[in-house]
Amino acid sequence: MSISALLDKYGSLYLQAMLTTWRLTVISFAGAMLIGLIVTVIRVCPIRPLRHLGDFYVQIFRNIPGAAMLILLVYALPYLKLNFPYETCVLIATVMIPSAFCSEHLMSGMNTISPGQIEAARALGFTFFQMILRIVIPQALRSAVLPLTNLLVATMLTTSLASQVPLRPRDLTGIVSYINTRDVGGVAAFAISAALYCFTGLALGRLGGWIDRKVRILR
């Protein structure tokens, strides 16, 4: 089938699939940012065992393949009497793995803060959490906009894991298998999804660049 024929027949499904991918991406990235922030604070806190725990978390989830993790969540957890819906399993994987990368980006963002500013904050009487909230996190975030934009795009691509489980409605990758099992969509069916991924990724890249210019810290 040609691209236009595919779009005629499956256009609304593609649209729905794109919206599903967007939704998974937004939830995953929001979760990854939240957990990434918490893990990062743990990794710099004054309590050494907690710091090690934070490092351990990052090493685990940075080094586990998404598909392997999804298989564990879907097939192994039921043995522990944990039966999560498919979407939850996908989201756990697409939150945890990017959260480890998020933490690494925030750590390198923190490294842009001069040690003198930390000393100044301590000398002014900031407690650890006041310093983290007012001085450290804002600067780490503002210095890490471009890598975090990268992570957002990567997270979107990672949500294609959803195609490996019977998730409804289907995501942009899942929809291709659906069409190709019913019609002879071939490469064209892939190309449409690829174009939609590409379009989203480019738009996110532009958005990230714009935010970076707005919040970049003069040094």
């Binding site: 001069s114 003198g116 500013q117 301590r122 000398a123 009487g125 001085i135």
Partner: peptide
């Protein structure tokens, strides 16, 4: 700890490299 932070808040410090918060 918190008591140290409270004590530090009552003593001003000025550094060689200013150390203003960049953001």
């Amino acid at each position: 700890g918190k008591k140290l932070a409270a004590m530090r808040s009552r003593i001003g410090m000025v550094f060689q490299s200013f150390n203003l918060f960049a953001h």
